[in-house]
Simulated assay, not measured.
Amino acid sequence: MRGLHLTADLYQCRCEPRWLTDARELGEWSRQAAEAVGLPVERELFYASEASGGATAALMLPGSHVCLHTWPDQRGVTVDVCLAHAEDDLSAKARGLMYALVQRFQPEWTEQRSLDRGDGE
Rank of each mutant, 00 (worst) to 15 (best):
D22P: 12
D116Y: 10
Q74T: 00
D88P: 00
L61T: 10
E44V: 04
E108S: 08
A36T: 03
M1E: 02
D116M: 12
S30R: 00
E28V: 06
D22C: 11
E50D: 07
A8R: 01
Q106V: 13
P62Q: 09
R31V: 02
V79T: 06
V41K: 05
A8W: 04
D9N: 08
D22Q: 14
E35Y: 04
R113C: 06
C13L: 11
D119K: 13
E42N: 09
R2A: 09
Q74R: 13
H5N: 13
M98G: 02
R95G: 02
G120F: 07
S52L: 09
G27N: 02
V81G: 10
V77M: 11
G63T: 01
W19S: 14
Q103K: 15
D89Q: 08
A94M: 08
L90T: 10
W29Y: 05
C15L: 14
D88Q: 14
R31Q: 08
G96E: 06
E35I: 01
D89W: 10
E16S: 15
E111N: 09
P107K: 04
D9W: 01
A57V: 02
G53D: 05
D89K: 10
F46H: 12
Q103S: 15
Q32Y: 00
D119A: 14
C67G: 05
T56E: 08
A94T: 05
L6W: 02
Y47T: 04
T110I: 11
D73C: 03
P107I: 03
V81I: 10
L83H: 09
A36E: 11
L10C: 10
R18S: 15
Q106Y: 09
Q12P: 01
T78D: 08
C82G: 05
F105L: 11
E25M: 13
W109G: 02
W19G: 13
M60L: 15
C15F: 11
A55I: 10
H85D: 12
E42D: 11
Y99C: 07
H65L: 07
T78K: 06
P72S: 13
T78C: 09
A84S: 13
D9H: 08
L59N: 00
V79D: 01
S114Y: 02
S52E: 09
V66H: 05
M1F: 05
G54H: 01
R75S: 06
Y99A: 13
H5G: 13
Q106D: 15
A57P: 00
M1R: 06
E121I: 03
S64F: 08
G38C: 07
S91T: 15
Y11I: 00
T70G: 06
L20T: 09
H85K: 05
A23D: 00
A36C: 01
D116K: 12
S30N: 01
E16W: 10
R95T: 02
Q112E: 15
L4P: 02
A48E: 14
R2T: 07
